[in-house]
């Protein structure tokens, strides 16, 4: 464990708490893409189900359980408790265009052609693109509540911090995980535009608004 990865994971944790806080305080899931959240459930379940047969560490175990449980809970809040506040007419990204190619990539690029390893690859590719419905929705509405942008910033920071972690591990341990690194770079790049607007508006105390 190095500091980059620790702060990356903490940032990921923070993003979940920010999202839960947003839903609870505004009593609404307005501005949150249900499709992105559903993809995260698929990502975490397919990747972290290995807690059933693989023991890494207590830290690893607790985090995995937390991410599976919290993502399911968020889906429950969106689908049941705050259902009326979700507007599917603006959450229109075609998810099938993501899942198909990711499944194909997972079949080609994996560390071992076994069910669980292909599933792991799929979760990595899917995670890298899971934010697209959310960003697409942001693009459509052209603005976002400040709390929602903090959520996205924390989520983006998580994968961004994994990049120096990989560089550090390459030099200190001599290991590299090309699948995770490639997908991680793509995922971080997707946030570039968002981060630019976030730092030039929200951090300066203005509302997040995309140029028309």
């Amino acid at each position: 464990m190095n500091l980059f990865r620790l702060f990356g994971d903490l940032s990921h944790l923070a993003s979940i708490f920010i999202l839960l806080h947003k839903i609870r305080t505004t009593r609404s899931c307005r501005g949150i893409s249900f499709k992105t959240q559903a993809l995260y459930v698929a990502v975490f379940v397919s990747r972290y189900l290995d807690i059933l047969w693989e023991w890494v560490s207590l830290y690893n175990f607790v985090m995995k359980v937390f991410f599976i449980a919290s993502s399911c809970f968020i889906l429950y809040l969106m689908k049941m408790k705050y259902r009326p506040t979700h507007d599917p007419s603006i959450d229109t990204f075609r998810v099938e265009f993501l899942v198909g190619p990711c499944a194909l990539l997972a079949l080609i690029f994996n560390y071992k052609f076994t069910f669980t390893e292909v599933l792991w690859s799929l979760s990595i590719f899917l995670e890298s693109l899971a934010i697209l419905p959310q960003l697409f929705m942001l693009q459509r509405t052209g603005e976002a509540e400040t709390i929602t942008t903090h959520y996205l910033a924390a989520l983006g920071a998580y994968r961004a911090l994994y990049i120096p972690n990989w560089i550090y591990r390459y030099f200190s341990e001599g290991v590299v995980d090309p699948i995770a690194v490639t997908a991680g770079l793509v995922q971080t790049a997707l946030y570039a535009d968002f981060f630019y607007v976030y730092f030039t508006t929200v951090i300066q105390g203005q509302k997040f608004e995309l140029p028309a």
Binding site: E54, Y111, W120, Y162, N165
Partner: peptide
């Protein structure tokens, strides 16, 4: 250089 999946990463 080893190419492998980092099992301890989340």
């Amino acid at each position: 250089m080893d190419q492998q999946r980092a099992k301890d990463e989340l």
